[in-house]
Design a protein around this nucleic acid. Structure first.
Length: 243
DNA sequence: AAACACCCCAACCGCAGCTGC
DNA sequence: CGCAGCTGCGGTTGGGGTGTT
């Protein structure tokens, strides 16, 4: 076991896991830099965070990937490229690392071989969709229960270039929250946007993706609505943008 | 039974974005 | 505005497990 510079590396022991679990049960997730001193663990904060998020968290589904999940991964990867955290956000209980590993181990080769030996498929040639980044300020009411209902858009991309044939320019910021069951309005919007875009990709009449998107502006204001509106999380996309 | 090859997954690393000062 | 610290992400690696020869 490595112990370079005083920090332990490598596989976690059962005792370390228990210490980390106890600490997070006590203090909650976050403040990762405080974990080593709170637990006495000789691990760096990144290692603690990763161990919890990828292995110890009770929300993790450790079952084999179902057919539906695999199908979802394939379709989302076509749309998003290697945005593992966003793909994982559509798969309850799956971590970005799980999805990434599964892709590397099982799907990447399959996709490559299908590209080399294309079969008849209903899917059209596609381009990677780069989602319009939406930044959530920590002052958002759904994060800290005060402040205005605003969501600002970062300006890292031109409005009409939601579509890109490049993968990897990471404009979709980490600020997009987990989409699954999220009460956060922009997450619901993004989720719906994604599926609308995919429907377009699968349709014969592809046309312009930008027609699916709201008029560009650099700042969107969300209206005041009652909680049930966001709770439904299934509201019609157009109605969100029209409000 | 031993040696080797391959697979899979946990963990690490480096980087970019965000936030507070 | 610039800097430093923190967080989260994607890419990559290392090692244990398993299959094959």
């Amino acid at each position: 076991m490595d112990n370079i510079g005083g920090l332990k590396k490598g596989a976690w022991s059962h005792e370390e896991d228990e210490l980390l679990k106890a600490c997070i049960n006590n203090y909650g997730e976050g403040k990762w830099h405080l974990i080593p001193q709170r637990t006495g663990l000789n691990r760096c904060r990144k290692s603690c965070r990763l161990r919890w998020l990828n292995y110890l968290s009770p929300n993790i589904n450790r079952d084999r990937f179902s057919e539906d999940e695999v199908d979802m991964i394939l379709r989302l990867h076509k749309l998003l490229g290697n945005r593992w955290s966003m793909i994982a956000g559509r798969l309850p209980g799956r971590t970005a690392n799980d999805v990434k590993n599964y892709w590397t181990a099982h799907l990447a080769k399959k996709v490559v071989s299908e590209k080399e030996n294309p079969k008849e498929t209903t899917m059209k040639a596609h381009e990677i969709i780069k989602p319009k980044p939406i930044t959530l300020s920590t002052h958002q009411p759904w994060l800290n229960l005060k402040g205005k209902h605003n969501v600002s858009r970062s300006d890292c991309d031109d409005s009409e270039t939601m579509i890109s044939n490049q993968v990897g320019t990471d404009c979709a910021s980490t600020s997009i929250p987990n989409l699954e069951n999220s009460p956060i309005p922009c997450a619901a919007m993004w989720s719906e946007t994604l599926w609308n875009l995919e429907e377009q990709l699968n349709s014969e009449d592809i046309g312009s993706y930008s027609s699916l998107l709201p008029e560009e502006d650099n700042f969107m204001e969300f209206p005041d609505v009652d909680d049930s509106f966001w709770d439904s999380n299934l509201c019609d996309l157009d109605s969100l943008w029209d409000l």
